[in-house]
């Protein structure tokens, strides 16, 4: 039975851009291999942290929203812990209100983009 999850990753700013992409591609592949469906991805890019983590004040934020079996999350988090490029991660199970909220947010964003494209 698949549940919907959302995970936020913070990667160290020391990385080059292609290293960041490579790390993200690794987890995208990991999810795909283990039968998870990636619903949405979002790259927030380099952002300032509210407090220094590992003596660094900025980090690459990345967001995965996916549907997976509950057993997969534990494996995924072990992978995150093992990877030194990731400073911090947070995986959340989404209830129906959260899923509806994300859906609505994506729809509005797409709609706004269309309006900008029109005028």
């Amino acid at each position: 039975m698949k549940k919907q999850y959302e995970t936020v990753l913070i990667l160290t700013p020391v990385l080059l851009q292609e290293q960041v992409d490579e790390a993200v591609a690794k987890y995208r592949k990991f999810l795909a291999d283990n039968g998870a469906i990636i619903v949405h991805e979002n790259n927030w890019g380099l952002r300032k942290l509210a407090y220094p983590i590992q003596k660094k004040n900025t980090g690459f934020y990345f967001l995965f929203e996916f549907q997976a079996d509950p057993t997969l999350v534990a494996k995924l988090e072990i992978e995150y812990k093992r990877d030194e490029r990731i400073m911090r991660f947070l995986t959340i199970a989404l209830d129906k209100h959260a899923v509806a909220y994300n859906e609505r947010k994506r729809k509005n964003a797409a709609q706004k983009k269309q309006e900008e494209a029109v005028n």
Partner: peptide, 13 residues
């Protein structure tokens, strides 16, 4: 508390 964990909000400022 989740926002603080992923450094979007400070613990103390």
């Amino acid at each position: 508390k989740r926002a603080r964990h992923i450094a979007l909000m400070p613990y103390v400022t």
